[in-house]
Design a protein around this nucleic acid. Structure first.
Lengths: 208, 208
DNA sequence: GAGGGTTCTCAACGCGATGTCGAAAATAGG
DNA sequence: CCTATTTTCGACATCGCGTTGAGAACCCTC
């Protein structure tokens, strides 16, 4: 099997690997992943098509690597709220804002990667890891709330996956129709919706 | 361009078109759409690969026709709740149950079709129509509630899309991991979540 | 600055899926 | 039975993927 990649110091090959990753990110931002051929990906990185396979096994593998990269960056987006106490709508809203900013840039292909019909094993692995991590982080927050006496009427894992999915889908929709929403209003509505979903009411709001 | 299909009376060709559609549905239930080749699709319907093109222009076209078919059947799932008055958790839950039953069978490929990265124009058209219809139906229900004095704190269209997406994602998850949920509990939790999302509280529940 | 191992590059090949064409077979009508 | 339309299929051309094996570039060490 090829695609062992380079192992020694940061030689020429590492530059190429980066170049491929960068080229891929740029291309995926412009066009559906399935329409980007390995040929043009390689060309964009300055090598021939067959050279591509020295670095990656397939387009899926590039995608997985790219996801890893981006998702690593995104880990801290919601950290503030996850660590916070009480409902803390402010922290939640800030986290959502950070998350939305990322979606605005890389949302398209990220969504493609994560929602793809038949992802290769590499993607599947990244996907499962990320979903599991996200759900467990949210679950913990929710369980903590439950112990603190806040009302939570469904299994925390289910609520966690609902919140995560809700966020993703709304952001995906924003990405698809950028002009349909005003960012501030959207963030307000989404924050409220999540708090309502989790706890039934929003402090300072008119629910009752 | 081929694929004009048969136009005269219900001759032999119409049977074949149906056979193709049926074969496609059966195959798509078993395997990711992208892995189903036109060759095996045609064979399953009893004709040679090249004969396929007499009936459809591409696999995408078959998929679009199939979506049309299924989505027509599904229109009435949530009708009861949409027409009902007040919170009517029972009607909501029944609608969700019906919807879930369909997802259990056709959810996989439907999701693939609707969530696909770069759908052909045919799919795109069906998709947009369905999403628009669904959102507007839900929006109307929500607006009616708002007028009736029930508290709704976000734009109805946004809430509608949240509810629809929430349902889809939860069902998609059920489809992916059938054993992770108990149907009754799931439906309870989802009904409550939706009511909470929309109105903040659930009648007879412990929110407050 | 020659040798030798590793790292990197690429042209050529084989494969499988798609879509097109034109000729032939089935079918229906007169 | 003869003819026109509908339906079927084999052969071809194309495109993208992944592999292979030969060799160029690089980087050490002596």
């Amino acid at each position: 099997m090829p695609a062992t990649g380079s192992r020694r110091g940061p030689t020429k090959g590492d530059q190429r690997e980066r170049a491929l990753l960068d080229a891929a990110r740029a291309l995926f931002r412009k066009r559906p992943i399935s329409q980007v051929t390995i040929d043009e990906l390689a060309n964009a990185a300055g090598i021939a098509r067959s050279g591509f396979y020295f670095y990656f096994e397939s387009k899926q593998a590039v995608l997985a690597a790219l996801c890893d990269q981006v998702l690593g960056e995104s880990d801290r987006e919601m950290a503030e709220w996850l660590a916070s106490d009480g409902l803390d709508r402010g922290a939640l809203r800030r986290g959502l804002a950070r998350s939305l900013a990322r979606w605005r840039v890389d949302g398209g292909w990220l969504r493609e990667a994560f929602v793809a019909p038949d992802p290769g094993p590499e993607i599947l692995e990244v996907r499962e890891r990320v979903v599991a991590d996200g759900c467990s982080a949210f679950s913990q927050r929710i369980e903590r709330d439950a112990r603190a006496g806040r009302t939570v009427s469904a299994p925390p894992e289910l609520l966690a996956s609902m919140v995560i999915n809700l966020r993703s889908m709304v952001f995906a929709d924003v990405f698809a129709r950028p002009d349909a929403y005003v960012e501030d209003e959207l963030l307000d509505a989404l924050s409220d919706a999540i708090l309502r979903l989790l706890y039934g009411v929003v402090p300072g709001s008119d629910a009752g």
